[in-house]
């Protein structure tokens, strides 16, 4: 069983959070260390998918006042507010690195298993799923539901949680978790968001608590998901933090990329 590091970080600035994930990817690539990290954001922040145009944030007026950071992973934009974010950096020597969809689903199944323990029913989205609810903020009408109280559907939604792809976690048709990967030569970064509660900056997206009526403890969620990761990914986690070298790398990446408007507004 491979040893892997567990980092539980306090809420931080969006650019710093992305810089740390990138530094951990470099560590996985250079030293072969796997790291699972849980973190939050110290203020509501919009993260753009790698290929998205920053002007497109105008498509989503509720989040216009939030700070912006561009991720190195693709997909749609995410409004990080009442959520738990995770990242997993895996070196190519780890068998999970070769499995795109499998790793995506493995992490999501852990979340579904944890929610089941709390009697909250969630499932993986499959492309054949009949009832798809894809809430999209409709700036023209200011409505997110149609006349039958069903969320509006838009396959090209600006926000990640307004889109669907196989393997997303859905509850009653609403997406409550999605992940994205960045593949390097020697390592893989996968990070994703678990939507806990509706944000006023993305009011069309209900979280687990809104849908289930139950409460989610962050501490317990992290404990349970860490234990599941040990079982499912066959790793032995040890609690750790960024090394001095990783801190230096994260600072460099912060200034070169995520904390730099040239990067964030490059498309």
């Amino acid at each position: 069983m491979n040893r892997a590091r567990l980092i539980i970080d306090p809420p931080a600035n969006g650019a710093w959070n992305m810089a740390v994930d990138q530094a951990l990817l470099e560590t996985a690539s250079e030293s072969g260390l796997t790291t699972l990290r849980f973190y939050q954001w110290d203020e509501p922040t919009l993260s753009l998918g790698y290929f998205q145009k920053h002007e497109d944030r105008a498509l989503h007026p509720p989040s216009l006042t939030c700070p912006l950071v561009r991720r190195r992973t693709g997909g749609g934009a995410i409004l990080h507010h009442s959520e738990l974010t995770y990242s997993l950096c895996v070196p190519s020597s780890n068998r999970w690195c070769a499995k795109n969809a499998e790793l995506y689903e493995a992490i999501h199944l852990m979340v579904i298993g944890y929610l089941q323990q709390k009697s909250i029913r969630a499932s993986l989205y499959r492309e054949t799923t009949a009832a798809v609810k894809t809430p999209v903020f409709n700036a023209a009408s200011n409505e997110t539901e149609d006349k039958n109280n069903r969320p509006r559907i838009d396959p090209s939604a600006f926000l990640c949680f307004g889109r669907r792809s196989a393997g997303d976690v859905v509850m009653q048709g609403y997406k409550i978790m999605g992940s994205a990967q960045r593949r390097g030569k020697n390592a893989l970064l996968q990070h994703g968001s678990l939507l806990l509660e509706r944000s006023r900056f993305a009011p069309e997206l209900p979280g687990i608590e809104d849908i289930s009526g139950g409460q989610i403890s962050l501490k317990k969620t992290i404990e349970k998901l860490s234990a599941s990761a040990e079982n499912e990914l066959r790793i032995e986690l040890f609690a750790g933090m960024l090394s001095k070298l990783e801190l230096e790398a994260a600072k460099r990446i912060f200034f070169e990329l995520f904390g730099n408007q040239q990067w964030n507004l490059c498309r």
Partner: peptide, 13 residues
């Protein structure tokens, strides 16, 4: 270069 799929962004070497 880089390529993005529904799940992953990958570099081209």
């Amino acid at each position: 270069g880089e390529v993005e799929s529904v799940k992953a962004t990958s570099e081209l070497y």
